[in-house]
Amino acid sequence: MMRIMLFLATNLAVLVIASITLKLLGVDRFTGQNHGSLLIFCAVFGFAGSLVSLFISKWMAKMSTGTQIITQPRTRHEQWLLQTVEELSREAGIKMPEVGIFPAYESNAFATGWNKNDALVAVSQGLLERFSPDEVRAVLAHEIGHVANGDMVTLALIQGVVNTFVMFFARIFGNFVDKAILKNEDGHGIGYFVATIFAELVLGILASIIVMWFSRKREYKADEAGARLAGTGAMIAALQRLRAEQGVPVQMPDSLTAFGINGGLKNGLAGLLMSHPPLEDRIEALRRRG
């Protein structure tokens, strides 16, 4: 599950490009000092980026990871994979998602899609080769848990909300710099433009900290779902196997990390932009849950 640097960069790029385009088209001037109109204006563009990303998430995941969708199983392993996902999906009460394998040595898996009945679940070749069947089943159950919990949609909506307020407060800041500091009374000047872009970059990073905090909370919920569907022991064993492989770099695109089983490690301030809690904390949470 995925969304750190690439998602952050993509989201900020959407905001910055939107700001530049709207400035060049002169749309900004229509919002002026009317904060109600400005908020509606920002909401439209704030949600647009996150919802577009959500609707094309399956396509982007397939393209960026090289995932091969299993339509007709060619081996008994692919047959087992399809049967296991079908069984877990039925138990979770969702429609059978697409199932794929992506070529990567590191152990990882992800789920994505615009709704829980039109999703994609994929696992890496490395995970299939090194994990036991019970551990692979637990990983799949974790991803099915993300789908059943509606985490993709919820995360996109939260991103849309924070995008809205990033654009809103950035424009208020830009207007303050332009009018109060630079004393520009003739429409929006260059000070407004530069200050708005700067504020969007700074506020965008702060907003991503909020989104990543939510992502970490949902990871515990997906672990609980995995434990219910595949057994607590199997879920703990899968997380322990991931911890044993922490020296292997996670190379899955960051736009998918928020919904991957393995999100990598970050310490210090970088931990605020971590999409996943530390594996030790996730294992301990499952043990306490029993």
Rank of each mutant, 00 (worst) to 15 (best):
M1W: 03
R3N: 10
I4T: 12
M5V: 15
L6W: 07
A9G: 12
A9W: 03
T10E: 02
V14L: 02
V14F: 13
V14G: 07
L15V: 00
V16C: 05
L24P: 04
G26K: 05
Q33C: 04
Q33H: 14
H35P: 00
L38T: 12
I40W: 09
A43N: 02
G49M: 02
G49I: 02
F55K: 10
F55A: 08
S57P: 03
M60D: 01
M60Y: 04
A61T: 04
T67G: 02
R74D: 15
T75W: 04
H77R: 15
H77L: 04
E86I: 14
E87D: 13
G93K: 07
I94R: 04
P97K: 03
E98V: 03
V99E: 01
V99D: 01
V99C: 03
P103R: 15
E106Y: 06
N108W: 05
N108L: 05
A109G: 12
A109W: 00
T112G: 00
G113N: 02
W114K: 10
A119F: 10
V121Q: 01
V123Y: 03
G126M: 01
L128R: 09
L128N: 07
D134A: 15
E135I: 02
R137T: 14
E143A: 09
E143G: 03
H146Y: 06
V153E: 05
T154N: 13
L157D: 02
V161H: 07
F165I: 06
F165L: 13
F165T: 11
R171I: 06
R171E: 09
G174C: 10
N175C: 07
D178C: 13
I181L: 15
D186W: 00
G189A: 06
I190W: 12
V194G: 14
T196P: 08
F198I: 14
A199P: 11
E200L: 11
L201S: 01
L206H: 06
A207R: 03
S208D: 08
M212N: 12
W213P: 06
E224L: 15
G231I: 13
G231W: 10
G233P: 00
A234P: 00
A234V: 09
M235P: 02
M235Q: 13
I236T: 07
Q240F: 05
Q240L: 09
R241Q: 14
L242F: 07
L242C: 09
E245L: 12
E245G: 05
Q246W: 00
Q246A: 10
Q251W: 10
L256E: 01
L265C: 05
L265K: 15
A270L: 15
A270G: 14
M274N: 11
S275M: 04
S275D: 07
H276C: 09
H276P: 11
L279Q: 06
D281A: 13
I283W: 08
L286H: 02
R287S: 04
R287P: 05
R288K: 11
R289F: 11
G290A: 11
